[in-house]
Amino acid sequence: MVDLAQISGIWFGAALNIFIWSLVFKENRFYRFAEYTFIALSAAHFSVLGVKSILTIGWIPLSTGKISYIIPFIFGFLLYTRFSEYWRWLSHWPIAILVGVGIGLGIRGAIDIQIIKQIRATMKLAVFANPMEAFNNILFVIMLISVVSYFIFTFAQEGTLGKGYNYLYRLGRLALMAGFGIALGNTVAVRLALFTSRWIFLIKDFLGIG
């Protein structure tokens, strides 16, 4: 028996896919239809997950007697006061909790993982087993220092020291370009992989070829 849900899904999906790609020719109503559908589905999906999460991590403990969980519920509802001009100031309180937690967790994590461990790993580069590794390690450290110095804007680059700094600054820019180039090459891979996956859907699932 033909699976009607599957077939209708493929036709619906193929139509939406082609509507989105129609933007390549020009902005049109089909594209806008697909665009609005995407926004609607995205917002609805996030809301559904929100409701499901409130029920599991909020309502279950509250219903089992943890009365203190009423507080995050009140703060959660306060978020929606931002749509009222008069009560908007109340929405800043739950946002303050989210920002405070984010800052606290962010600072402690950044110091450990992004600063201390990264510096420690760089210092370990002083140890090497062969000339090739030595070359790589030296290049690594030079590029690292030059890129970090590229991001320092707090003092004027003048005098003899400033001249030396300018060379480092220039090297930093070249190193960044190498990094951007590698990132570009990899970005292309992602876009082509997604493009290919859509073509597989259109050719194999929709047209039934291959």
């Binding site: 993982i113 990264q118 990094g179 590698i182 990132a183 990899n186 970005t187 891979a189 992602v190 992989a193």
Partner: peptide, 17 residues
Amino acid sequence: ATAVAAPGHMAYVESGD
């Protein structure tokens, strides 16, 4: 990792994290 994010993770790969 996705190919676009992988370059950003390589510093952590080098550090052994």
